Amino acid sequence: MYTNADASLQFSTSGILDPSTVSIVNLFINGILQPSNTYVVQPGVLMLSDVPFQGVPIIVQFIQISTS
């Protein structure tokens, strides 16, 4: 489990957002897009089914699509 406190401040632009407030959530581990059934995103929390090796970059991407 990862929380907002685990973020690397030099690269973080936001905390872990509520997935109900965005259009798309993507998770990349070591640059590889992960299937959505291998993780759960909740406000401020990312839970993974498998733990990556220490030091491997984890990127959670939030995309908001609007019609205006």
Score class of each variant (00 low, 15 high):
Met1Leu: 12
Met1Asp: 15
Met1Ile: 13
Tyr2Arg: 13
Asp6His: 12
Asp6Gln: 11
Asp6Ser: 11
Ala7Gly: 07
Ser8Tyr: 13
Ser8Cys: 11
Ser8Ile: 15
Leu9Arg: 13
Leu9Pro: 12
Leu9Phe: 10
Leu9Thr: 14
Phe11Gly: 04
Phe11Leu: 12
Ser12Ala: 15
Ile16Tyr: 03
Leu17His: 00
Asp18Phe: 08
Asp18Tyr: 06
Asp18Arg: 09
Pro19Val: 02
Pro19Tyr: 03
Pro19Asp: 03
Ser20Phe: 03
Ser20His: 08
Thr21Leu: 08
Thr21Phe: 02
Thr21Gln: 10
Ser23Phe: 00
Ser23Tyr: 01
Val25His: 01
Asn26Thr: 01
Asn26Ala: 01
Asn26Pro: 01
Asn26Asp: 10
Leu27His: 04
Leu27Ala: 03
Phe28Pro: 08
Asn30Leu: 04
Asn30Cys: 03
Gly31Cys: 10
Ile32Trp: 04
Ile32Asn: 11
Leu33Lys: 15
Leu33Cys: 06
Pro35Ser: 12
Pro35Met: 02
Ser36Trp: 01
Ser36Gln: 11
Ser36Arg: 07
Ser36Pro: 05
Asn37Val: 01
Thr38Ile: 03
Tyr39Cys: 05
Tyr39Asn: 06
Val40Thr: 15
Gln42Ile: 01
Pro43Met: 03
Pro43Ala: 04
Pro43Asn: 10
Gly44Tyr: 06
Gly44Asp: 09
Leu46Cys: 07
Met47Trp: 05
Met47Ala: 13
Ser49Trp: 02
Ser49Phe: 05
Ser49Gln: 15
Ser49Asn: 14
Ser49Ile: 09
Ser49Arg: 11
Asp50His: 10
Asp50Arg: 12
Asp50Asn: 15
Val51Ile: 14
Pro52Glu: 07
Pro52Gln: 07
Phe53Cys: 04
Phe53Gln: 14
Gln54Gly: 08
Gly55Trp: 03
Gly55His: 09
Val56Leu: 06
Val56Gln: 13
Pro57Thr: 03
Pro57Val: 02
Ile58Val: 15
Ile58Met: 07
Ile58Pro: 11
Ile59Cys: 05
Ile59Ser: 07
Ile59Ala: 07
Ile59Leu: 05
Val60Phe: 01
Val60Ile: 14
Gln61Lys: 00
Gln61Gly: 00
Gln64Thr: 12
Gln64Ala: 06
Gln64Asp: 11
Gln64Gly: 04
Gln64Leu: 11
Ser66Arg: 13
Ser66Met: 10
Ser66Trp: 05
Ser66Asn: 14
Thr67Asn: 13
